[in-house]
Amino acid sequence: MGPFTYVRAVDPVEAVGVVSADPGAAFLAGGTTQLDLMKDGVLSPEKLVDITRLPLRGIARTGTTIRVGALTTMEELAADPTVAVRVPFVREALLAGASVQLRNMATIGGNLLQRARCRYFRDPSVAACNKRERGSGCAAIDGVQRMHAILGTSPHCVALHASDVAVPLIALDALVHTRGTDGTRTVPLTGFYLPPGDTPDVENVLRRGELITAVEIPLPAERTRTHYLKVRDRASYEFALTSAAVAVELDGTTITGARVALGGVGTVPWRAWDAEDVLRGATVGRDAFREAAEVTLAGARPLPGTAFKVELAKRTLIRALETVTGAP
């Protein structure tokens, strides 16, 4: 790691001021992405503003939502009783991610902002990576693909958004609360991430120095059943090849409400709006589930290394729906 100035922030306004004013500055939360990429030489900020002492920790229930301070760790959020009872798929996604050690460090704000796992992005000896340097090309498209996206890709980047917990959160229409130099704002997670297009280096709507202060999770109706299914190369401690977050409400065998999102396939956590349209009003069973999966992956643009993901993602969604509905 190269040298940098370490600043321990005590006030959110000050932290935002420092990073907004200095293009060489970055926030440091749990450090599990930031320090990792600095060691690899992918990031080399001159100043790190440690935000872990800011009063942005803790989980508060307010009526029909829970407000999660940005510095709440993944383990803390997974242990929350309201999360466990009302949105268990958020807990499942958290516990299916990383390891206990990393989850004790990693914050929910940092998790949403984790960077691509693309091996070319993480290796500065590879020159071509539009995400690292705009206009330099994309080594993955002509290289080896596996942990890459098949939905929302562009000719300039096929990197995956690898967060697990962002998948159920986007299905729930979670809100991201932020603070910038001109005050606070609230951005729906569904509009937070930006597909790569021809600027893969721009990953979300945050402005320089804008701080995530909290993530607000709307609680679905009490009878909603939820499930997160993650398929990966080993049973634990591995990123998703494909995953599905599903929340459904049933009236007998009729699906009256459905929220669906996929992980492991999108350049951004993938809300499957079309699948929801298919499922709402449908009868529980293979036919509806298969159709929901087909419409979701209809726009998939796989590369040779990711071709297997198209069918795997469909089956992942179907299995998740079978589990959550208790379908035979």
Partner: peptide
């Protein structure tokens, strides 16, 4: 428990 390699 944490990993000491990713903590300053």
């Amino acid at each position: 428990r944490v990993v000491a390699c990713l903590m300053l």
